[in-house]
Write a protein that binds this DNA or RNA. Structure first.
Lengths: 205, 205
DNA sequence: GGGTTAAATTGACACTGTCAAGATTCATTT
DNA sequence: AAATGAATCTTGACAGTGTCAATTTAACCC
């Protein structure tokens, strides 16, 4: 059933997501045209509409995959109890910026205005994204308990600010504003040091 | 010469920028159509092309205006020596987030992928934007000298991280991700407190 | 086989940015 | 004041885009 049929494609849904992801990484969100995508896959212009309500629905599906991917990375770092919290905290920062800069277009999709602008995001995307946000708060609370981050602030606020920092750095790098890729590591270290100012254990780096 | 002529508009350049800014704030970048814009102003579809090479050129001009506006705000706060540095630092943070959330679409234009994605920005935009970036470094260096920010980091890195934080918070709020407008003030205070951890003078707020 | 349903197709519409060629007005020079 | 040249604005046209409607094709179940 997964052969090379001509009329019924067989697994157009997955094929579209894969092809769209590839096209996305090459040409960006703006350069992702449904028609050219269909041509790539070898179906007619409107075939995708039987699997995705919208162009937004397709993009949402890709973004959802990105969230799942990232969530897994974050969980692995966070749950690796063989390393000290401090190291895991730094790893987390580097992993976040690494993920964002390795897949800039997908990152843009996950957090950009295209999907979150005016409630264009699919319900199924929200169901994947929100737990991802929530996880950040959980981690932040634990970092506060471990004394890594100051605990005189609400965990939610703290999570918003720390994530905001990573988000902002990622975007400055991605968009090539005011920061270029050669300074990624140093910027991550600088951010980590800034957050852990009162955590006086290791000032050497 | 600013009358109601019919063929020659008289001051189409400024009129277009104003109308485009208005349309932008209402419908966003995506919703800004050159054709509808021309109709708004009362000229034909291609009239704008005699004043702007591109749609990008128009957007760049609007963004440039935004940078000038912000630069002026920042300078006023920074140069107001009647207030203590600490207060001016907090004011700066609140002003930044305030500017971004008051004109979300213009902010998106100033720092988003539309103009900075792949070198689409006009030269004249760069000429306005880069000094704006540079100014941030200057301020950061002085904040370090005053003991507000830790001085064991390079000023450039520090500036990238602090601006990154503000940029990230602004975007999270604007895109409605993980943070909503009702927490703006608290988030700003949290960020300020985080930056000034080692500055032990005022912990009360 | 017949009938239901899912999947893929062509045709069409409204919309977009942008180029080319022509019309109109302004400015300046003679 | 007339003419020339440049600036400005116009209509016409083209290649794209997302998306809907009606239609054909294939699969699946009884």
């Amino acid at each position: 059933m997964a052969g090379a049929s001509q009329y019924h494609h067989g697994d157009l849904y997955s094929t579209l997501i894969d092809a769209a992801s590839a096209r996305l990484e090459k040409f960006g969100i703006e350069g992702l045209s449904l028609r050219k995508l269909a041509e790539d896959v070898g179906v007619s212009r409107t075939a995708p509409y039987h699997h995705f309500k919208d162009k937004n629905a397709l993009l949402s599906a890709i973004a959802a995959k990105g969230f799942e991917q990232w969530h897994q990375i974050a969980e692995e770092i966070f749950a690796n109890e063989s390393l000290p919290v401090e190291q895991r905290f730094k790893d987390f920062i580097h992993a976040y910026i690494g993920f964002a800069t390795t897949h800039p277009q997908i990152y843009e999709l996950m957090f950009g205005q295209t999907l979150w602008g005016e409630g264009k995001a699919t319900d199924s995307l929200r169901e994947v994204a929100y737990p991802c946000f929530q996880y950040q708060v959980t981690m932040t609370r634990l970092w506060q308990e471990k004394g890594l981050l100051p605990s005189d602030q609400h965990a939610l606020r703290m999570a918003q600010v720390t994530w905001g920092t990573l988000h902002g750095i990622a975007r400055l790098i991605i968009d090539g504003i005011y920061a270029d890729a050669s300074h990624i590591e140093e910027m991550c270290d600088c951010a980590a040091a800034l957050f852990m100012q009162h955590h006086a254990t290791s000032a050497t780096g």
